[in-house]
Design a protein around this nucleic acid. Structure first.
Length: 361
DNA sequence: AGCATTTGACCAGG
DNA sequence: CCTGGTCAAATGCT
């Protein structure tokens, strides 16, 4: 975690403002899409850095020299040993660290998303948003019909990433899950996300072209996302990957499903509609963690090589497992932004690799 | 064997 | 004291 000061935050915000001005000027003068996109990335990067500095607790308001050491250095896990294995002398320190950690967690930004899954007995799915999550607990909640699952970023130990999420099935609608995120990702995205998506695209082109055309048609028909409240639109969010799987019912019978991200408090609505009997969904906005080109993929085959076990388990019983791999990385990394994507015009052959191997089985 | 998940226990806050 | 959140040993899976 980058240790920041107030001045660093201000600098970063000023940089973002300057970029926005530049973008406005370029818009008026009719700049190229590439130039605008580059500026957008820079702006988002500046915002994200700012958020990271603030939410990491690395900034003490009013005095940059009094930076609190509440980054990874105070966390028990960053010490490389189990808190409970410490000696008695370390016990007090451990308790103190735990208190600090709890306080800090409460200060982390928190928002809730509602994820709606498609219906049908065969619904299963998983999301690859470039982040990996590890389940660290499940708890029966008083008065709640369904248990709550607790997930943390699997890079917590290695990179000190504090992002966590809670997944709980909605009582009103069993197909809807409330996903509460806390903390932004400070870890690097899995580099394999894009590569695996490309591989599946190639596979698609070689083996499943005809079947997928039907699926694509169906998907395009049902997949419509509206954009509101955003000055500049991007047809594809950055570095996100979506894996879908579909019920073994005819494609034509699949009704569009919608999932809604509704970040609370400081966030406006982040509404994303997904069609095609959608399972789970995630998206990622332009992230500071990666400067790579935008990528957006949808795969009806749930990429069994990587997530098969999880998907199968999910299919068996609790959809919580589906969400376990799912994350709204966009919200996790860029909670200040609202973005809906109009995908009708997107060339799905290029950008949405399908692998219908499991879908057809 | 290494990794992820499960689950009972522990802890802190209200 | 109760509850939600987290830990970590046990277990399962690849």
């Amino acid at each position: 975690m980058e240790i920041g000061s107030t001045s660093m935050v201000v600098d970063e915000m000023a940089r973002g403002r300057e970029m926005a001005r530049q973008l406005q000027a370029d818009f008026e003068s009719g700049c190229s899409a590439d130039t605008c996109q580059a500026l957008v990335k820079e702006i988002l990067s500046a915002f994200d850095k700012t958020i990271s500095m603030v939410t990491s607790g690395a900034v003490i308001a009013g005095n940059g020299s009094q930076q609190a050491a509440v980054g990874t250095e105070l966390l028990p896990w960053s010490a490389g040993k189990s808190p409970r294995s410490e000696s008695s002398s370390g016990r007090a320190l451990e308790v103190q660290q735990r208190r600090e950690m709890c306080k800090k967690r409460k200060m982390l930004p928190k928002w809730t998303s509602q994820v709606r899954l498609g219906s049908g007995p065969g619904v299963e799915g998983t999301i690859d948003d470039g982040y990996s999550w590890r389940k660290y607990g499940q708890k029966e909640i008083l008065g709640a019909k369904y248990p709550r699952g607790y997930f943390r970023c699997s890079h917590r130990d290695s990179q000190g990433c504090l992002s966590v999420k809670q997944v709980q099935r909605s009582e009103d609608n069993p197909l809807v899950f409330d996903v509460t995120y806390r903390g932004t990702h400070t870890c690097e995205r899995r580099p394999s996300a894009k590569a695996s998506a490309s591989a599946s695209r190639d596979l698609l082109q070689q083996q499943q072209q005809q079947q997928n055309q039907d699926l694509l048609l169906s998907f395009q028909t049902g997949l419509k996302v509206k954009t509101e409240g955003l000055e500049f639109k991007s047809p594809e969010p950055s570095s996100s990957s979506i894996s879908f799987s579909f019920p073994s019912t005819p494609v034509e019978s699949v009704k569009p499903e919608t999932l809604t991200f509704s970040p609370s408090s400081t966030l406006d609505n982040c509404l994303v509609g997904c069609g095609g009997g959608g399972a789970a969904f995630s998206n990622a906005f332009v992230s500071p963690a990666t400067s790579e080109s935008n990528y957006f993929s949808v795969s009806p085959c749930h990429q069994m090589s990587s997530y098969g076990g999880q998907a199968l388990q999910a299919a068996e019983s609790d959809f919580t497992e589906i969400i376990s791999a799912a994350t709204c990385a966009s919200a996790a990394n860029s909670p200040l932004l609202d973005m809906d994507f109009l995908l009708d015009g997107v060339d799905l052959d290029q950008e949405f690799p399908f692998d219908a191997c499991s879908f057809l089985s």
